[in-house]
């Protein structure tokens, strides 16, 4: 990958310049659709943007220096990690992608949840700690199907390069793997029915309970970017057409991402929040079954 291309991917598409507005768009779509499904008007489309600006402009509360540093650094790290993951998405396939970027992607995608867990403990609030614990338990639960699906795809394509995987994995593996990934999205994005990590009625805002002003703004941004990155990953894997022209690829990528947001929001609106044990069971049972199925097919299929 050339430096120029890497910079383009990090800063323009699907990185910063694309991802931040689309993150706000997705947050708005999710809230707006939820509202419409509940018979309400819902927020205007600029809502997440103004939420972000307003939070940035709030004066942070005084805190002990070390805690203040940690509480500022963690959301920055989460934003940076997600942006990095976004830059790796091979929306436009190319020969230059370095092999093994799949591993890097998985690692980068794990940064925001990890930061959230740390944030919960650093904030020294009992609800933050509870949220962090739940986040940690859930991440163990969904990691198995999530990783199994990606490994199955890698095995099917016989490569650890995302670009190659998105082009070459066969549909017999891709289908169960995509289902397993789709199952992991609600919990990674903390929406119903797997929103137990930030269940407001139980533990306030979970890990971010104690965050205020600019620090919270960064968390909101990181959350939006996670939406873009995870739906983007799914879109890349679901649309392999290698010889489509680049504008078409970009349009299809965006369309699939946004459609996925709508589906997730509709599912969230139609369900109650499952308890921690129930959510974990879904992942251990159904998620793992799908992941293992994908793996078996990837290994056994000639």
């Amino acid at each position: 990958m050339t430096v120029g291309r890497a910079l383009f991917q990090l800063l323009v598409f699907p990185g910063l310049l694309y991802a931040v507005p689309v993150a706000w768009l997705m947050l708005w779509m999710e809230r707006k659709l939820t509202a419409r499904l509940q018979g309400r008007i819902g927020p205007p489309f600029y809502q997440p943007f103004f939420d972000f600006v307003k939070l940035l402009a709030k004066r942070p509360l005084p805190r002990p220096p070390l805690q203040a540093l940690a509480m500022s650094a963690l959301p920055v790290l989460a934003v940076a990690g997600t942006l990095g993951a976004l830059a790796l998405l091979p929306v436009f396939p190319h020969s230059g992608g370095f092999t093994g970027d799949l591993v890097l992607l998985v690692a980068l995608l794990e940064i925001p949840p990890l930061c959230a867990v740390l944030a919960g403990f650093v904030s020294r609030s009992i609800y933050g700690e509870l949220g962090a614990t739940r986040e940690a338990v859930l991440s163990i639960a969904y990691s198995l199907p999530f990783l199994a699906a990606l490994v199955a795809l890698a095995a099917a394509a016989n490569s650890l390069s995302l670009s190659v995987i998105s082009q070459q994995a066969m549909w017999q593996v891709r289908l169960p793997a995509l289902l397993a990934l789709a199952l992991c999205l609600p919990v990674k994005l903390r929406v119903n029915p797997f929103s137990v990590a930030n269940a407001e009625q139980e533990i306030y805002a979970g890990a971010t309970t104690e965050f205020e002003g600019p620090r919270l703004a960064l968390w909101e941004l990181a959350h939006g970017l996670e939406w873009v990155a995870l739906t983007g990953l799914w879109a890349v894997l679901a649309f392999p057409a290698a010889n489509a022209a680049w504008p078409l690829r970009a349009v299809v990528f965006v369309a699939i991402s946004l459609a996925l947001v709508l589906v997730l929001a509709a599912v969230a609106a139609a369900t109650a929040r499952l308890k921690l044990a129930q959510a974990a069971r879904v992942y251990w049972l159904w998620g793992s079954a799908l992941g293992v199925l994908a793996m078996v097919v990837a290994v056994v299929w000639p």
């Binding site: 939820t34 499904l37 509940q38 018979g39 309400r40 119903n192 029915p193 929103s195 269940a199 009625q201 609106a269 139609a270 369900t271 109650a272 929040r273």
Partner: peptide, 10 residues
Amino acid sequence: VIGFQTLFMT
């Protein structure tokens, strides 16, 4: 309380 906002609204 069980996180079912739609039903709450209904």
